[in-house]
């Protein structure tokens, strides 16, 4: 019996890594007396998985996990009990028992990010838009990243342009340029936000102040082709 759960991760808690987050949930299940199924064996641990783990330092408004329940409890009851024991910056937003038996990890295809950064020189919004759009119009945007090849690690070049769904320059708030970007995640192609930032930084005219970059994941989507939608509601 799978319970699919939507939660957020905000403020300083963006500095909690994925393994730390797993431990936090494990202990929270225990504190909230949630009947989660445990694995067999010498070192039993609760069975749950978080889709598309966030990189350290990225906030999120909507994350998802699937929990294998040992017995059914009402979704509202689950949310109530968990939110009592979770820190205020990680809270459960929704929970449902899905009909679709496929795992959340295999379903997620796109992620929407809000990206904020300051520039090293003062730059008006139209100028920023012009630079970013012309960067996006390149046929190929090449990044190189470390890939495992057997036991070796090799640098591999990759064109990330097809992994960018859309990119909007939303505006300027104070000295920060605000972008919204849809990026591919999952097995059918995966673009990590920090790789995206490093690639965008190649547009030198933009004069990004890399230390000022703030990234927030706004939501995750499933579906392919024309239509994409949120996993829960």
């Amino acid at each position: 019996m799978i319970l699919r759960v939507k939660f957020n991760k905000k403020n300083y808690l963006k500095y909690i890594g994925h393994l730390d987050l797993l431990r936090l949930f494990q202990r929270s299940f225990s504190r909230a007396a949630i009947p989660v199924k445990f694995s067999e064996g010498f070192n039993p641990h609760p069975r749950f998985s978080i889709a598309s783990p966030l990189s350290l330092g990225i906030e999120s408004e909507e994350e998802y996990m699937d929990i294998e329940m040992a017995e059914r409890i009402e979704a509202e009851e689950f949310i109530r009990r968990m939110n009592q024991v979770l820190p205020k910056d990680i809270q459960i937003l929704e929970a449902v028992y899905p009909e679709d038996k496929r795992s959340i990890s295999s379903l997620i295809t796109w992620a929407l990010y809000e990206i904020r950064f300051a520039t090293k020189v003062d730059m008006d919004l139209d100028e920023a838009k012009r630079i970013i759009n012309s960067w996006l119009e390149r046929e190929e945007i090449i990044i190189s990243r470390l890939r495992k090849k057997g036991r070796k690690r090799v640098m591999k070049e990759e064109n990330i342009r097809p992994l960018i769904g859309h990119l909007d320059v939303k505006g300027k708030e104070g000295d920060e340029i605000v972008l919204q970007a849809l990026m591919k995640v999952g097995e059918g192609g995966n673009l990590r936000p920090f790789d995206f930032i490093n690639a965008l930084n190649e547009a030198e005219e933009l004069q990004m102040d890399l230390d000022s970059v703030l990234i927030k994941r706004q939501s995750l989507y499933i579906g392919d082709g024309e239509e994409i939608y949120r996993p829960v509601k």
């Binding site: 300083y12 500095y15 936090l24 350290l56 330092g57 024991v85 970059v213």
Partner: peptide
Amino acid sequence: LDRILKKVEKPARYIGMEIN
């Protein structure tokens, strides 16, 4: 603080906010 936390190893050492 936010600027530097992004650059350090194990930033969760410096944020507090733990359970209890």
